[in-house]
Simulated assay, not measured.
Amino acid sequence: MTDLPGTIDREDGDSGGRWIYRHAGIEAEMTYSRLGQTKIIVDHTGVPDAFRGQNVGLALAQRMVADMRAEGLRVIALCPFVKAQARKHPEWADVIE
């Protein structure tokens, strides 16, 4: 995983949630919605300008993939960033449709 000075946490609810990277009072996020018991839809990745070029989006995607692997869930990527990263990371094909 990408080595960043902040932390990535996950907020998970009945209908969806988000992964949040926090550092120096600034947040980046990747949001998702649940689609039944076996899938989620990742619909947005937002990275503030303060984090640009630091691979924060990639770190969020890596955490999402790791969590979904651990939980045995599949991902439908509606987020353009996640779609692009999935093309660059064929090893994520077991998680991202």
Rank of each mutant, 00 (worst) to 15 (best):
R74E: 01
Q37S: 14
P5F: 04
I41D: 03
I96E: 00
D12Q: 13
R87I: 14
Q62R: 11
G36D: 07
D3N: 15
H44R: 14
T2G: 04
V75Y: 01
I8D: 00
I20G: 01
K83A: 09
G72N: 08
G17P: 05
E91Y: 05
Y21F: 14
H44I: 07
T31K: 10
R22M: 05
A93I: 12
R34Y: 05
R22C: 06
V42F: 02
M30Q: 12
R22S: 14
G6C: 09
I8P: 03
D43K: 13
F81K: 02
L58V: 06
A28W: 03
T7N: 15
V56A: 09
M68D: 04
V56Q: 05
E11A: 11
E97H: 03
S33V: 13
L73V: 01
A66V: 04
R63C: 07
F81L: 05
A93G: 05
K88D: 11
P48I: 11
R74H: 04
P48W: 12
M30H: 07
L58R: 14
A61N: 06
V95P: 00
G17Y: 04
H89G: 00
S33E: 11
A84L: 10
G46K: 13
A50Y: 09
L78G: 02
D43P: 04
Q85W: 08
R74K: 12
S33A: 15
R69M: 12
R69W: 07
A61E: 02
R69V: 06
T38R: 14
P5V: 09
V42T: 01
Q85C: 03
R34S: 11
G53H: 10
L73A: 03
T7K: 15
D12I: 15
F51C: 02
H89C: 00
M68G: 04
L78R: 11
A93S: 11
I96Y: 00
R34L: 15
L35P: 04
E71Y: 08
W19Q: 06
L73C: 03
L78D: 07
P90G: 06
W19L: 14
S15F: 14
G6L: 08
I41V: 14
A93P: 01
I40Q: 02
L60D: 00
A59C: 13
I96D: 01
T38L: 10
K83I: 04
A77D: 01
G6D: 08
A24H: 14
L78K: 10
D3V: 11
G72Q: 08
D9A: 15
R69C: 08
R10E: 14
V82F: 10
D14F: 11
R34C: 13
D94N: 07
D49C: 02
V47T: 07
H44E: 09
D49T: 12
I40T: 05
G25M: 07
M64K: 09
V95C: 01
H44W: 09
F81H: 09
T45P: 07
Y21E: 06
G53F: 11
A50Q: 15
K83S: 02
Q85L: 07
I26D: 05
S15A: 15
T38G: 07
R52Q: 13
